[in-house]
Design a protein around this nucleic acid. Structure first.
Lengths: 339, 339
DNA sequence: GGCTTCTGCTCAAACGTTTGAGCAGAAGCC
DNA sequence: GGCTTCTGCTCAAACGTTTGAGCAGAAGCC
């Protein structure tokens, strides 16, 4: 392929080699009908020989697509990136992006210094054509600003305060009801606690609400224990769970479930015999622990694929292969609930 | 902040509001000494009011930095992205990037259609200023092409065939020797097998070589079992390990170790009593299994940070805070070896 | 044979930025 | 007071691309 190693090759170089104008080369490359077939062949040959790659900056300046979308994660890098949720999201987005010849730009808001709208800059600087946003707090003002900015944005997750935004999400509340009822109905547990996620995030709110709703439907007093989605917060809650004499726990994610199980085991509480546990997410952890964790499977890859696919048309890609709607979350039965 | 929502704001808009030329605004924004302080203030005011964000395409066309680096993973998306190694790498790179106001572009080679040098296009299209490459096969011709392309590239991992390339890596061979000797010396195991990683990757080669070297130093016949870093390949090897009457296994990564342990447990083999196991990586899995897996800790985040930091100067960032050299890998003692 | 239509290009402007060269007016110097 | 120096800008070109307008020559039409 490319002969010339460094030193960028431009349209001008190709044009000179072929002996036509720059315009002719540009038109030939996009298969314009008014360019002779023979010329197109000679242009393609020169492109291959010289290793010409179109300069994106030049293209973008003329108002054309850059060919990149951003994945915006407003939290700090260490907070979210280490979570496997992110891996699933990235996988889904990357699949759709790759299939449509788009690059993925990862944008985290690591420095609060540059203001709350740091990720806004990415979009408006013209580096990307659109963005998928995830893991933002419900009341993040930057997100609202982004959505109203007029640039293509799809939210991954539920943002009730931004009903005008295009978003992709699952019914966490309903899934939480199902999980809680499994403890009550299938395993006869009546003294139930919920390990809450961070209440600034809608997913955590919905999971908690589903738990409470299911308890109330079965005339059970719901016990809420604070948590923040971290394994540590789950571990920290173990004492409290033991003291309260709880016999069933629904954790807002698997990591907290695991943290609690770890500490409970150390304290001699047997799971699931003494205490049944159900988690949420199924991003990997719940399958490999002993006992394995019964959990609500979140189709994160499929959700991310959908979000990225939603971005295609606004971003100027019309003939994309359609992406199926993500499945609803469902309960994956493992050992920790007693099944 | 920004008043005008959509419709991009350019230097021209700022210049008009302030009542100076575009050049004056541009110079004021980079704090040029020949622009009056008062003018600078008025420019800053107008920038804030209008929500001006510099257009990267315009900037890049003039030959300036784009402000983005790529993380190139030549394998297909599903193959590598789902691996937690990737999460650690991304975390490290993102930290350094964020600290230096760089965006991270993720480039995978999902479609073989576009030729072996698909990721080469990312670099040469001018979308990024440089790239970190990881998880490439040792003999990937695209990498060689990339390295010789003259654009800033840092390899994450050892590539003996590309000694001229800037690369960041650890001594896998030495760590593998240490791990194997731990089985021999600390636990008295004499019938040892190695679960090999894919031999097209240098890390897998080095880990195997270290195992063989340690065995030979202790006059032990090394047993090599094929694998490909996947949990399934580890599981598939379990039968063979049981048949061979092996009492110690060194796996080239934790996932294979886990796969083998899972199947061995199902077959009634006790780990570590009957069979001591040591893994490699320590990216998360080895800590949460039962028994937990003794493993070689790979400082992936630190390695990625180093790689990204190496890219800063070639990419035009001179005053960056230095990143410390990554630590050497070390053995983390857990349950699976019998410690 | 003089007209129109078609073919296969070229010309030139534009996108938004940066920066060396230059210039007008003020200030300083003796 | 006439010179130089300084201050604070402006001018204009350039980066690489795309695309509407236009043009020369060939072909077709009657």
């Amino acid at each position: 392929m490319a002969e010339r190693a460094a030193g960028k090759v431009t349209l001008k170089d190709v044009a000179e080699r072929v002996g036509v104008s720059i315009s002719a080369v540009s038109l030939a490359l996009k298969d314009h009908p008014r360019i002779a077939e023979d010329t197109k062949r000679r242009v393609q040959l020169a492109v291959d020989e010289l290793g010409y790659v179109g300069n994106i900056a030049g293209r973008a300046l003329r108002g054309k697509r850059v060919g990149a979308i951003a994945l915006i994660v407003p939290n700090t890098s260490s907070h979210v990136l280490t979570h496997t949720y992110f891996l699933h999201v990235l996988t889904g987005i990357n699949e759709v992006a790759a299939a449509n010849d788009l690059q993925v730009v990862l944008s985290t808001n690591a420095d609060e210094l540059h203001g709350e709208v740091a990720y806004d800059r990415v979009l408006r600087s013209g580096l990307v054509d659109g963005a998928v946003v995830t893991s933002a707090a419900v009341d993040d003002p930057g997100i609202a600003h982004l959505v109203r900015g007029g640039l293509p944005v799809v939210l991954l997750g539920r943002y009730p305060e931004l009903p005008e935004a295009d978003s992709v999400f699952i019914d966490d509340l309903d899934a939480a009801v199902t999980a809680t009822e499994h403890l009550i109905v299938a395993h006869g547990r009546r003294r139930l606690a919920h390990l809450c996620g961070p209440q600034g995030h809608q997913s955590a709110i919905d999971r908690r609400d589903g738990f409470v709703q299911a308890c109330e439907a079965h005339r059970i007093e719901p016990i809420l224990v604070e948590g923040d989605y971290s394994e540590e917060s789950g571990a920290a809650a173990a004492d409290q769970l033991a003291e309260l004499g709880v016999d069933g726990v629904f954790a807002a994610n698997d990591e907290m479930a695991f943290g609690a199980m770890r500490e409970l085991a150390a304290a001699g509480v047997r799971v699931p015999a003494d205490l049944a546990v159900i988690g949420y997410d199924d991003f990997g952890l719940s399958r490999v622990t002993t006992p394995s964790i019964t959990t609500v499977h979140v189709p994160a890859v499929e959700l991310a694929r959908s979000a990225a696919a939603r971005l295609l048309k606004p971003v100027g890609i019309t003939e994309a292969t359609p992406v199926p709607a993500p499945p609803e979350p469902h309960l994956v039965l493992r050992q920790s609930c007693g099944c």
